[in-house]
């Protein structure tokens, strides 16, 4: 897992800045739970008393086609909720990779749903974390929980928010869905985290 102080990045103009503010883009087909991932991250950030913004794409785009949202998590008040160059991109399908791969900041990380995306980023200046989130979710008997696997992986890898906060957030967000659903989703989040942990230690 990356430590925060290690994340001194350079953007394209070579300006370096510390990561007290991070921007993450989530993108995929409608129905992949993309907006929900963003909402979970923003809620978890809020629970840690961080400043957060959640900016969805909306309108025609929301209805049927691709969906994306930008989440900013910051220790200080957030000036702009818009990402010039996101630090992290969570890309759940191939069109999303094509659209956002070029935007990620140098030194940033791309999280790919490797069950849906065969291509890999052409650039060498970003880290790529490929996770078969559908396969993992199906193995857990929670086929609709692929986004939960991904958010677990994201939290574990980036340290943006703690796994505990993510789990606490989904408990609140899915409060009406009962203990069983919460248990399944918690498991999916932990499996996602375990997957990236295993990858980085191997």
């Amino acid at each position: 897992m990356c430590k925060k102080e290690e994340l001194v990045l350079k953007d394209r103009e070579g300006l370096s800045y510390t990561m007290s503010i991070t921007k993450t883009i989530f993108s995929g087909f409608g129905g992949q739970g993309v907006l929900m991932m963003g909402y979970v991250l923003a809620t978890a950030g809020m629970q840690e008393d961080k400043h957060v913004t959640y900016l969805p794409s909306y309108g025609a785009e929301v209805r049927g086609g691709t969906a994306n949202c930008t989440i900013t998590v910051s220790d200080d008040p957030i000036a702009s909720p818009v990402a010039s160059f996101p630090d992290f991109a969570v890309l759940m399908n191939t069109p999303s990779l094509m659209r956002f791969e070029g935007k990620v900041i140098t030194g940033g990380t791309v999280f790919l749903n490797s069950d849906m995306v065969e291509l890999r980023p052409k650039r060498g200046d970003v880290e790529v974390v490929a996770i078969p989130v559908n396969t993992i979710a199906e193995r857990l008997g929670n086929a609709r929980g692929a986004n939960m696997v991904m958010i677990g992986a994201l939290a574990q890898k980036t340290g943006l928010v703690s796994l505990d906060s993510v789990i606490k957030s989904i408990k609140e967000i899915f409060a009406t869905k009962g203990a069983k659903v919460h248990e399944m989703n918690t498991l999916a989040i932990k499996e996602g985290a375990a997957f990236v942990e295993e990858q980085s230690s191997s």
Partner: peptide, 10 residues
């Protein structure tokens, strides 16, 4: 504007 209307913040 659309961004103010759609954006979520605490």
């Amino acid at each position: 504007d659309g961004l103010m209307g759609q954006m979520m913040e605490p």
